[in-house]
Design a protein around this nucleic acid. Sequence first.
DNA 1: GTCTATAGGCAGATAGAC
DNA 2: GTCTATCTGCCTATAGAC
Lengths: 190, 190
Amino acid sequence: MIKKDSKEKILEIASRLFQLQGYHATGLNQIIKESGLPKGSLYHHFPNGKEELAIEAVKYTSLYIEEKIISFFENESDPIAAMQSFIIDTANQFRKPEDIKGIPIGLLACETALINEPLRLACMNAFHNWEQLIVNKFKEAGYKQELAEKAGILFNSLTGGGIMQSITNKDPRPLIAIAEAIPLLFSKKG
Amino acid sequence: MIKKDSKEKILEIASRLFQLQGYHATGLNQIIKESGLPKGSLYHHFPNGKEELAIEAVKYTSLYIEEKIISFFENESDPIAAMQSFIIDTANQFRKPEDIKGIPIGLLACETALINEPLRLACMNAFHNWEQLIVNKFKEAGYKQELAEKAGILFNSLTGGGIMQSITNKDPRPLIAIAEAIPLLFSKKG
DNA sequence: GTCTATAGGCAGATAGAC
DNA sequence: GTCTATCTGCCTATAGAC
C-alpha cells in the first residue's frame, strides 16, 4: 500500500490552508494540487464538496488543538500556569514569519458565522470542546463551578483575540500580554 | 444634485458587507447591485479595484469605531467603566440576529494578514488608532504609562476575541464576560 | 463622470473511462 | 477507488459609447 491514506492527506492539507488563508480564499484546486491527488479523489471522499471538506477539516483541526491542550494540562497541574504555557507556546510561532501556522478555527468561524450555518455549527462545536477541557481542568484543581465556567468562556475569547492581534501585527507580544494577564483573572480559589 | 455622494455610498455598503461576510466572500457585483450604481462608477472612484476599495472601507470603518470610542469616553471619565460600557454596547447587537453588524476590522485582518500585505497594513493601522485612544484615556486618568500601554494592547485582543465568540455562538455572553473581567485587569493605579 | 457590454480567468462541480 | 476532461457560472477587470 503506497498511499498512506489519501483522505487524511487531503484533510491535513485543507486544514492547514484554511487556517492560513481562510475558507473563501482557499480553492479546491489549490488543495488537490498540493496533495498531488486528482480532483475525482477529493469528490470521492467528500461527495458534498467544499463545505463537507471544510466541516471535516474543522473537526480535524479541533482534535489537534484538543490534544495540544491536554498535553499542556498533563505537564502542569496548576490550571493557570498550564493555560499560560499554552498561550506562550501559541505566541512563539509569531517570532518568525515562516513558523506561523495561521488561525486554528477562528478565521473560518468569523468568515462563516453569518453566511454558512453548517460551518458555523462545526466551529461552535470545536470552541465548545476546548472550553470543556478548561472547565474540567479548573474544577479538578478545586475551583468553584462558577469560576471554572468563567475560565472556559474567557479562554476562547482571550486566545482568539490574542491570535488575531498577533497575526495582524506579526508580533508575539499581544498573545504574551494575554498570558501575563491570566493570573489576574482567575486568582481566587473557592 | 440628486445623488448625495456615490463614492461614500459605495464605501458605506462595502464597509457593511466586508464586516458581515468578509473580503473574499463579498463580490463587487453584490456591492454595486446594492448601491444601484453601475460598475463603471465603482472603478471610476476606485481605479485599483477591489483591493483599493477594501483599504478605503477599512479606513471608513476604523473612523466610525474611533468616533464611537470617543463618544463613550466623553460620557464617562473612568476609563474602566467607559471601556465596559463600550463592550456591553457591542455585545447587545448579539441579542437579536437582525441587529448583528458583523466584525468591524478583525475579519478582514484575519483573512488578509498572511496573503495581502496592503490590506494587512490597513487593518494594523486601524487597530493601532483604537489602541492609542485607550492609552491616552488611561494616561489622562492618571494611570502609569506602562499600565496604560498594557490596557491599549489588551483592548483590541479582548474585544476582537469576544466578538469572535459572540458572533460564532450568536450569544452576547462571551462579550459580557469580557466586560466583567475588565476591572480585574486594570484595577491598580500608579 | 455615467453607464453598458463583455472579456478572460478561475471557481466548484460533474461525467464517465479505467 | 483513481483519474481526466469538461461544464457552467461567477469573479474581477476593462473598453468604449454617451
